[in-house]
Design a protein around this nucleic acid. Structure first.
Length: 445
RNA sequence: GGAGAGAUGGCCGAGUGGUCGAAGGCGCUCCCCUGCUAAGGGAGUAUAGGCUCAAAAGGCUUAUCGAGGGUUCGAAUCCCUCUCUCUCCGCCA
């Protein structure tokens, strides 16, 4: 969420910055609401102040057993007015809040302005894509011919966009998670966390997935239809949280929300947290894309990196965090490049994002395997996540998150990059200790 | 799932309709005193807003005692709903 003060003090400039990322801010509506808000709020507070004064007088008078009926009569009349003005103010503020919640973060000045992902800027690359002396297969045919990857059975169990791995491949998947967690905790200073996979609406609001991206989430109804109490019309009307839970689309949600509604001492910063979790995405609106294979699934595992830092340090932290994700690919020996996303391609909450794209021989392309973002105070403001600064004042934290890495896609990259002419797949040395010394995936036969 | 108890400031804890943003204690900060240490004395110590101000400072003001609603001139206090915590029973990985 943007600081509303920014919109009040520099509406034009802020709107222009939002336009850089293709967001059209409802200027007219906002200005009208804001004018009205100011009027109503002042009026409300005047009336409330008057009521407080009168009530206090009544109290004093009664304490001295004097007659207070005249004062009470005036106060009685006030009540009605206050109720009216208050409810109008509430409505206006809810509308302002609605606009604010739909407004994305401001891109950092260094971010290239663009219209699509084609305008992303390559920052650096590492490793050289391997030249195959045979026809390279993609991970689907590799995995299926090894007999370790089975999409049709997954479809039977659950439907499209799920996968089933067995045997050494399932183990490799587990090994990757262990390897990534070990690296981040032992070498990069992260604290490992085990987090809930179901979170409430408030948490999703905090990190920015709600209210705008509800259709991308899997929602778990909490109350039974029929037998239970069911949704009352009042719930719907109040717009209140219905208590439903959502499957996490990323561990960023539970990890970042750890500091929601908290004020942490500045000495404890930066906080570095990591977790291995499954992630669930309904991928509404991506129907035609990546239908083959494990690239885009409703369920995938990921090791997530989250940092909560002093505002002064967030851009430095973004570079470091991105480096932590890169380190995994380097250890595995997977070629990649780092892209700086342009304004059009960045996520809702980010001011600046680096995508790490791994080389996939099966697609003859670099594909996203990690996305590392600085959100500055955007999420922190929604979460009321603060620290006590050097002057002893509470101040909003800056939040960062990045994949370190998406496990399914890393698995795909390993299959495709380390395949051999005979259809077997070599296991990167770094993973072998986690695989009981196994150095190659072979077919069952 | 059943029965009961509870949720107050950084912490402990008082407060059952008014003068309460909230006693008291602990902690913390500053000052005084004491040649060190200990003890003692004094002052201060929530958060988010609004208006004012060129800005800072300041001033005025509102809201917040788990959350939401209600009663009332007035709610931490009374009523309703919800959430969470604890205890006991049942069930269970």
């Amino acid at each position: 969420m943007l600081d509303i003060q920014l919109l009040r003090s520099d509406l034009e400039g802020t709107v222009a910055r939002l336009a850089r990322r293709g967001h059209r801010f409802p200027v007219e509506e906002f200005s009208t609401l804001e004018t009205e808000r100011k009027l109503l709020q002042t009026r409300t507070q005047e009336l409330q102040a008057r009521r407080n004064t009168l009530s206090r007088q009544i109290g004093h008078a009664k304490g001295r057993s004097e007659d207070a009926s005249a004062i009470m009569a005036e106060a009685d009349g006030l009540g009605h007015d206050i109720g009216q003005v208050e409810s109008r103010l509430e409505r206006i503020q809810a509308e302002l809040q609605h606009i604010l919640l739909q407004t994305p973060n401001l891109p950092h000045v260094s971010v290239p302005v663009g219209k699509s992902e084609a305008d992303n800027r390559a920052v650096r690359s590492w490793g050289t894509p391997r030249v195959f002396e045979f026809a390279a297969k993609d991970h689907v045919s590799l995995g299926e011919s090894l007999g370790l990857l089975d999409f049709s059975t997954a479809a039977k169990l659950s439907g499209a966009r799920f996968s089933l791995m067995t045997g050494a491949l399932a183990r490799l998947h587990r090994a990757l998670a262990q390897f990534m967690l070990d690296t981040h905790t032992n070498e990069h200073g992260y604290v490992e966390a085990y987090v809930p996979y179901l979170v409430n609406a408030e948490s999703l609001l905090g990190t920015g997935q709600l209210p705008k991206f509800k259709e991308d989430l899997f929602e778990i109804p909490r109350r039974q239809e029929g037998g239970g109490r069911g949704f009352s019309p009042e719930d719907a009307r109040s717009g209140a949280d219905d208590g439903n839970l959502y499957l996490i689309p990323t561990a960023e949600v539970p990890l970042s929300n750890i500091v929601r509604d908290r004020i942490v001492p500045h000495e404890s910063l930066p906080l570095r947290l990591t977790a291995h979790t499954p992630c669930f995405r309904s991928e509404a609106g991506s129907y035609g894309r990546d239908t083959r294979g494990m690239i885009r699934q409703h369920q995938f595992d990921k090791v997530e990196l989250v940092q909560l830092v002093h505002p002064r340090q967030s851009y430095e932290a973004l570079e470091i965090l991105t480096g932590h994700a890169e380190k995994i690919l380097q250890k595995l020996g997977l070629p990649y490049r780092v892209m700086e996303l342009c304004t059009a391609d960045m996520g809702f909450s980010a001011t600046k994002t680096y995508d790490i794209e791994v080389w996939l021989p099966g697609q003859d392309a670099y594909r996203e395997i990690s996305s590392c973002s600085n959100c500055e105070a955007f999420q922190a403001r929604r979460m009321q996540a603060r620290f006590r600064n050097e002057k002893g004042r509470p101040e909003l934290l800056h939040t960062l998150n990045g994949s370190g890495l998406a496990i399914g896609r890393t698995l795909v990259a390993i299959l495709e990059n380390f395949q051999n002419a005979d259809g077997s797949v070599s296991i990167p040395e770094a993973l072998q200790p986690h695989m009981g010394g196994m150095d190659r995936l072979r077919g069952k036969a």
